[in-house]
Design a protein around this nucleic acid. Structure first.
Length: 619
DNA sequence: CTAGGGTTAG
């Protein structure tokens, strides 16, 4: 029955001029309240609101209670404006009303700041004190806007008002500190809270994963299981820890654990599946990622994006592009977004597909109306420049609506040194970044960046004197080049390697094995495109490229030192950008050695979150 | 007398 019909018999009722008896008012309010429970949209709520205005006395506590309910309902229908109007029409607000409005803002993407302002106003007005419901909402808003100082103020208020023992409040604090990257503060709250719930553990694990403390996250996960059954949220963090570690064995274990132990609810299913796809891709098993993807009854945008990106980062451009076509064709209610195009551009970039890349860049703008962001520009500029179209790349840099970052300048500089652009042009480009904070912040404290590239430019022009000057500058500024690092997981054990590293106890055998691989590759007519230097050339004087580009150390281990039966999957991790030839080389090697090879690209493209940088930070 | 906590790719 619709609410208007329900209201109709009540409509003629006009409250008597004098205050009604308490019990009569009680009944009337109770009736409205039970009507409120049946409201299912704004228009019904508006009727109810009108009726309330007409038939109740505004100052009665029971009426205020009703307005609270109306506020709550309008924000549950996502009509925050209406909630504000109701709120403003009332003189004295209960803490419930403040809380409800703060919550409504905290949940509204465009009103996060307002949530904190409202909270401040609540304190200023002092008509009702914040309670245990207030803080979790405010903290959520602070977390969202990364308002560390705001959140800290809230934390003080929490203590001051005596809520530092409340689980919900503490969970809010953990989540807040976690999302601001303040791990130690999150940990302190977690350690000191008197009572923990599943959410407390989940929030803490998530905080660890966010800052890349994957090992600690998994440790905490194990500890947690003494008191709680993990749920879908837990497993998502665990999966992303496995992804971060690149540990396929742990990831597979988590997958099995998930199927065995977790009662994952249907709404979360897609999210979990997406995490699984992401994990398998980052751990190098595109096969398993594809299997999960195929098995999904429902796929959302993130599912498609994860899959496309997986193909892209593994240099499997054709499959990435096919996957995109499939998405457009069969993905119901799924529209490509800017992440999709980052993935497509990465796919083109890794295989040097210049025309396709340009085409997608145009399609994105023209057909999908997506404004290219910095990372799209980064991708396309790198692609075009590495293909030798340096002028075109520079034109693009000039036409960008935003300021190019150091990554983009380095792409150009790298291309210049490889494609024999003039030293003057290279110097011009290097001037944009050399010595800047942005450049020195590149790649996890790896400070080489532009200096390294510039010295390479001089080296290729045989201007050894200038090479020396740059070297001197570097050492004067305390800049050291850091070697690239890679690792391989064999039978659950992770082996880590650095470029030019000779500390491995079996170094000699490793390099012997490299020589074997090199010879084989040469015998079938393959030469790596980056230089004519043999793979085994791993001298450390910086004048030559490292062999690391083919991750040959790992191959050596896998093929030479540890005897593996044929068909044993070998997973190769690397921190280097995938060379455009990587896929081909991998295919060749796997043919030569009759083994499946899975390359995992640990590169986080460009400048996101962990601040790592993808490319060009090696000699 | 109301209610509340934790996710999304680069």
């Amino acid at each position: 029955m619709s609410i208007s019909l329900l209201l109709h018999p009540l409509s003629p009722h006009i409250p008597p001029a004098s205050s009604p008896s308490a019990s009569a008012a009680g009944n009337h309010h109770r009736r409205i309240l039970s009507l409120a429970e049946t409201c299912s949209d704004m228009s019904q709520l508006k009727q109810l609101h009108a009726f309330t205005l007409r038939t109740t006395y505004p100052d009665e506590p029971a009426t205020l209670f009703l307005y609270g309910k109306i506020l709550q309902l309008s924000s549950s229908f996502s009509n925050v404006n209406y909630a504000f109007r109701v709120f403003d029409s009332i003189e004295n607000h209960s803490s419930f009303m403040w809380n409800t409005l703060i919550r409504a803002c905290a949940h509204d993407v465009s009103r996060k700041e307002e949530a904190f302002l409202l909270y401040r106003k609540m304190l200023e007005r002092g008509e009702s004190a914040p309670d245990k419901h207030t803080f979790p909402f405010v903290l959520k808003a602070c977390a969202y806007i990364f308002g560390l100082s705001e959140g800290k103020q809230v934390h003080c208020q929490v203590v001051k008002h005596g809520f530092s023992g409340d689980v919900y409040v503490n969970n809010g604090l953990i989540h807040f500190y976690g999302s601001c990257g303040c791990l130690d503060l999150a940990r302190k709250v977690f350690d000191e809270m008197p009572e923990r719930s599943l959410v407390s553990w989940n929030s803490m694990i998530d905080a660890l994963v966010r800052v890349g403390e994957y090992d600690s996250a998994l440790q905490l996960f194990r500890k947690m299981q003494r008191s709680f059954e993990p749920d879908g949220y837990t497993m998502q963090s665990v999966l992303s820890a496995c992804a971060g570690l690149g540990s396929l064995s742990l990831g597979t274990w988590s997958h099995a654990f998930l199927l065995r132990n977790c009662d994952v609810d249907v709404a979360m299913d897609v999210l979990i599946m997406n995490s699984l796809i992401d994990m398998y891709c980052k751990c190098g098993s595109l096969r398993m990622a594809g299997q999960v993807f195929q098995g999904m009854q429902k796929r959302d945008l993130a599912s498609w994006n994860a899959m496309i990106l997986g193909f892209a980062t593994h240099g499997r451009a054709e499959e990435a592009l096919d996957c995109f076509d499939r998405m457009v064709k069969e993905g119901k209610n799924v529209k490509p977004n800017s992440v999709t195009f980052v993935a497509l551009l990465i796919a083109c970039n890794h295989r040097g597909l210049v025309n396709k890349g340009r085409q997608y860049f145009d399609t994105m703008v023209r057909d999908y109306g997506i404004e290219p962001a910095l990372e799209h520009y980064g991708c396309i500029i790198d692609l075009v420049a590495r293909a030798g179209y340096i002028t075109e790349a520079i034109d693009m840099v000039m036409s960008m609506p935003m300021k190019p970052d150091a990554v983009i300048w380095r792409s150009l500089l790298d291309a210049c040194s490889k494609k024999g652009a003039s030293v003057e042009l290279s110097e011009e480009i290097a001037r944009n970044i050399i010595g800047t904070k942005e450049d020195s912040q590149s790649s996890n404290g790896n400070c080489s960046g532009a200096y390294v590239l510039l010295s390479r430019v001089y080296a290729s022009a045989s201007r050894w004197n200038d090479v020396g000057i740059v070297r001197k500058l570097m050492s004067d500024h305390g800049i050291r080049k850091e070697p690239g690092c890679s690792s391989i997981e064999i039978n659950g054990i992770s082996h880590e390697f650095f470029a030019g590293d000779t500390s491995h106890p079996q170094t000699k055998q490793i390099y012997q094995q490299l020589k074997v691989i090199d010879d084989r590759l040469r015998s079938i007519g393959y030469l790596p495109d980056r230089s004519q230097a043999p793979l085994v050339d791993a001298t450390n004087d910086g004048s030559k490229e490292y062999s690391l580009r083919l991750h040959s150390e790992r191959l050596a281990i896998a093929f030479g030192l540890i005897s593996l039966p044929p068909q044993t999957p070998i997973r190769i991790f690397k921190n280097l950008r995938v060379c455009s030839d990587c896929h081909e080389v991998t295919k060749l090697i796997s043919k030569v050695f009759n083994t499946e090879i899975i390359v995992r690209d640990r590169v986080r493209f460009h400048h996101f979150k962990d601040g790592s940088c993808s490319c060009l930070d090696y000699w």
